[in-house]
């Protein structure tokens, strides 16, 4: 079932309507087949520093890596992310940005596969033939309780259901989800920070993607505008990866 695919990427980030600075960071390069979205955690000092360290750290590690075979991708990601996590904690220690942290969603396109790495509540969705799936699981208290990974009482103890359980910088033990997806032409991956998903529900996302399917270059701006129209409560970052037939 061999089929050569080509990746096209379009992305943008926006401060939103409420925040005074943009704590999201992003990097994408279709030729390299790499995209990274990080959302500095609000309420903590130096969210923008943490997200920028995450994006740059993974980008550098990838650029310094000569080539990757399928079986080498997962160890590479685990090692790079672990390194970045330690760097965030070390740089924060004793400084004004101590305790800084960030979410991370990155995708590496290797051959006909995408490797999605994920920590926190930034998300990656898959769109195909008018269907939309959330691929990543938000690492928050609510989901952990629902799946039985945290005791039932955790929700009562934590007033914020969306409080993050996993993110870069939160702990020296850093566990990252890595998913493998075999690509097929026509698929669209949407990677975004919660500034988008907190404002625009999945149904609406599906409708907008469908509407812009033939002009994807306009889609990030359109989604950001939609989030801003809905209130723009947080920074918004959107990257679209389109799987085209080569």
């Amino acid at each position: 079932m061999g089929c050569i695919v080509r990746i096209e990427m379009f992305g943008a980030t926006d401060m939103g309507r409420v925040r005074k600075n943009n704590q999201d960071s992003l990097y994408f390069n279709a030729e390299l087949g790499l995209l990274i979205v990080a959302d500095g955690i609000g309420g903590r000092k130096g969210g923008e520093v943490a997200s920028s360290l995450a994006v740059n750290g993974i980008k550098e590690a990838y650029l310094n890596c000569e080539s990757l075979r399928h079986e080498e991708v997962e160890p590479f990601l685990i090692q790079s992310i672990d390194h970045v996590n330690k760097e965030i904690i070390t740089k924060g220690n004793g400084s004004s940005v101590e305790g800084m942290a960030t979410t991370l969603n990155c995708i590496l396109f290797v051959g006909e596969k995408a490797f999605i790495c994920h920590m926190g509540d930034s998300r990656t969705y898959l769109y195909f033939k008018n269907n939309l799936w959330q691929l990543t699981l938000d690492h928050n208290v609510e989901n952990y309780v629902e799946r039985g990974w945290l005791p039932d009482g955790s929700l009562a103890a934590n007033p914020k259901k969306g409080a993050l359980v996993r993110a870069l910088g939160l702990s020296t033990q850093c566990e990252v989800d890595i998913y493998e997806l075999r690509l097929q032409p026509g698929e669209i991956l949407l990677t975004c920070s919660d500034g988008l998903t907190g404002m625009v529900n999945d149904k609406k996302l599906l409708r907008i993607i469908k509407e812009y399917e033939d002009r994807l270059y306009e889609l990030p701006a359109r989604l950001i505008a939609e989030a801003n129209e809905a209130g723009g409560q947080d920074n918004i970052t959107v990257v679209i990866s389109h799987v085209a037939r080569d």
Binding site: F128, N131, L135, I178, E180, L181
Partner: peptide
């Protein structure tokens, strides 16, 4: 709209859309 499904295997990889 064709109804499609995605399968998540072992929280590691996806199969589909099918």
């Amino acid at each position: 709209m064709e109804r499609l499904y995605l399968i998540r295997v072992g929280m590691e990889r996806f199969l589909g859309p099918y």
